[in-house]
Design a protein around this nucleic acid. Sequence first.
DNA 1: CCGCTGTGCTACGATTTTCGTAGCAGAGCG
DNA 2: CGCTCTGCTACGAAAATCGTAGCACAGCGG
Lengths: 92, 92
Amino acid sequence: MAVFDLLGRRWAQRVIWELREGQPTFRALRERCGNPSPSVLNTRLAELREAGVVETVEGGGYRLTEDGRRLLEALLPLHAWAERWAKRVSPG
Amino acid sequence: MAVFDLLGRRWAQRVIWELREGQPTFRALRERCGNPSPSVLNTRLAELREAGVVETVEGGGYRLTEDGRRLLEALLPLHAWAERWAKRVSPG
DNA sequence: CCGCTGTGCTACGATTTTCGTAGCAGAGCG
DNA sequence: CGCTCTGCTACGAAAATCGTAGCACAGCGG
């Protein structure tokens, strides 16, 4: 179950989620994620790049690979569940 | 994005996955997950119980709630992606 | 009553991960 | 040369996790 090793780390899923559109820079991505420390973000990005789901953009910025976009789609049901769950936990 | 807070912690997703069938005891669950330290497992179980996705069984053991089972279903696409990905990363 | 076994779970020092802040090297531009 | 952006590193402090040991309780056989 290597996926839990890749995606079970802090910020990993969040990074993929925040890369769902655009090609944010390192700093912009960091801000979108809620300002994790740059060292961790860099480590995650390195892991995700090595896993082939994230890639750098010529001239700066990051984006999902084709594989990454498939992973993002696989995260959609989880997100749908999360929204229903959030409403149930703290309605309003 | 509270779901990343709940499921972005180590072992959280794994615990849910390993509860997909049966009602394993604390120790059995721990073994299935690959022996995380009991303190972390207990913390995760407490968080998941508070979130309402895991519950204890009368007479011992743990299982998913109805909500937990829905969450498990939301994890299936992620798992399907993971299997394809694992084959691509290390074929054979 | 005693011991054996299994249950959930706690304690605690060691290790690993993450945090938070500061700053570096390089590129582009005036 | 200086300003601003880029990705990224350094480093001490804090938090999370590890690994091992063991506690309290319950059931059951003798």
